[in-house]
Write a protein that binds this DNA or RNA. Structure first.
Length: 477
DNA sequence: TTTTGAGTTGTTCGA
DNA sequence: GTCGAACAACTCAAA
């Protein structure tokens, strides 16, 4: 059993199939060094470290061993196969181009050696090639895709977790502590630990906590970054496969059917899970989604270059409290509320007019839930270059968005404590406060908190002008 | 083949 | 304060 981003024992199709053969199962994780794979970001490495340790424990609890190896996947598998005499390799599929290429190469090689090689769907409700439009293509618009999934998807029965693994002779393993996945010098992850419980158990707890209550208010509360339980917080668990979307679907449906969850709210939650699926459709059919504009017309977009602006954005020093709060939350705990992700992404690509790939890169490095499909698709959606893109004239106003969604003000006060004593009226636009109010709140603009790095109205107009230029260039071409 | 209706998440302006 | 319209044109999906 080759574990990848499916770090769970429950409802794991590849693991289940391996066990069903009746043969002893060798459990393996490979820290892949293939140069074609996109290197994992720092926050993801932090999570992986904890998740693997939990999985190792769970496997040892049922009499097994989780092997850790670092190297090229193909060479490592060959080595383990010959060492153990395994006659088949099982895994759950991935959908990025580099990963698919590696996997199909390995599958071919194993089969040539007369060995079994079986792959399964362990991380999606429906795989990217299954939902087809009437004319046979893939869906490029979310709403009809969502309808198609609702009409066609039926979860299969949940696969239980193994309770006992047949013993295999101990095999030499690398020490995960030597992999350096946990940051040192400096350890920037000190706030991650209290926030997250990586691993299957933590995922199950989150799902349970969410569907036993908050899901029934999801439609409104999902937009409230100031609420602790407005969203499920399942994204990193999903990203590492500590839970699968099918488990989420079944559990949510069961709550609806039992009358324990508000149907409209619960379905909105599931639709968000399906947004993740939709991203995988787009990635599968557009392998360069992380680097190339989905809409080629955007190649003519007059993006700006602005090192200082990018740095201010990354460090949460733009002078717009809701933006800075989000960017600081991201840095502190490796996660940002979805509503705020849209605000900061809009700010980067519109107010600062910087290429979306800058944001995509930063999120890739800093998010614990960094996902090859969702990250690329969502950044492109915001920038306007994506499938089913946001209309170009939709430029989020970072002041009114803060006022509207950080209703209590707790979000900005938590992540921008230097502004905590400002009256709510000025919390999202401190530069509008008079000197007396600023003084009373202990705020010195330009010293304790920055002036806005770009004026909202000017930034907005500059973005709209850029789209006009894009349009002219397109028409000229 | 042609037609038709629709498309996650917003903002601004003027009545 | 509230409300509706304008903000473009295009692509997609299905009738």
């Amino acid at each position: 059993m080759w574990f990848r981003r499916d770090l769970r024992l429950h409802d794991n199709p590849a693991l289940n199939a391996a066990i069903q053969t009746g043969a002893p199962v060798v459990c393996l994780y490979i820290l892949e060094t293939d140069s074609t794979l996109r290197p994992m970001g720092g926050a993801s490495q932090w999570w992986l470290d904890k998740s693997l340790k939990r999985l190792r424990e769970s496997i040892e609890d049922i009499g097994g061993q989780l092997l850790f190896k670092r190297g090229l996947a193909r060479e490592t598998l060959d080595e383990i196969v010959s060492q153990t005499g395994a006659n088949a390799v099982f895994w759950n599929r991935r959908y990025d181009q580099a990963g698919r290429d590696i996997d199909s190469d390995i599958k071919q090689s194993l089969k040539q050696q007369g060995l079994g090689a079986e792959s399964y769907n362990g991380s999606l409700l429906t795989e990217p090639w299954t939902q087809k439009t009437g004319s046979g293509g893939y869906y490029k618009v979310f709403t009809p895709y969502w309808k198609s999934v609702q009409a066609n998807y039926q979860p299969s029965a949940e696969l239980g977790a193994p309770t006992q693994l047949k013993s295999v002779p101990k095999i030499e393993t690398e020490n995960i502590e030597d992999w350096g996945l946990h940051p040192t010098k400096p350890d920037w992850s000190t706030e991650f630990g209290p926030k997250w419980l990586p691993g299957e158990e933590g995922a199950a707890q989150r799902l349970q906590a969410f569907i036993s209550g908050p899901v029934s208010e999801y439609k409104d509360h999902r937009n409230r970054p100031d609420l602790e339980k407005g969203t499920s917080g399942l994204s990193p668990h999903l990203a590492f496969g500590e839970i699968g979307p099918a488990q989420i679907w079944r559990a949510t449906q069961a709550k609806i059917e039992a009358g324990d969850a508000n149907q409209a709210n619960a379905m909105t939650f599931l639709s968000e899970v399906v947004w993740r699926e939709f991203s995988y459709v787009l990635l599968y059919h557009n392998p360069e989604l992380a680097t190339e504009n989905y809409k080629p017309a955007f190649n003519a977009m007059p993006w700006r270059e602005d090192e200082a602006g990018l740095k201010a954005w990354q460090q949460g020093q733009t002078g717009y409290p809701i933006v800075d709060a989000g960017m600081r939350q991201l840095w502190a705990i490796g996660w940002m509320h979805n509503r705020v992700r849209m605000i900061v992404a809009s700010f980067l690509t519109k107010h600062l007019l910087l290429h979306w790939s800058h944001g995509e890169d930063w999120f890739w490095d800093t998010l614990v839930d960094a996902d090859p499909a969702a990250n690329s698709a969502s950044w492109q959606w915001t920038a306007g270059s994506g499938a089913d893109a946001a209309p170009y004239f939709r430029v989020f106003n970072p002041i009114t968005q803060g006022e509207k969604f950080d209703e209590s003000g707790d979000y900005v006060r938590k992540w921008c404590p230097e502004l905590a004593r400002l009256p709510h009226k000025f919390l999202y636009q401190p530069w509008e406060a008079g000197p007396l109010i600023l003084h009373a709140a202990g705020v010195k603009l330009g010293e304790t908190y920055p002036h806005p790095i770009v004026d909202h109205k000017e930034g907005r107009q500059r973005a709209l002008d850029a789209y006009d230029i894009l349009k002219e260039r397109r028409d000229a071409a």
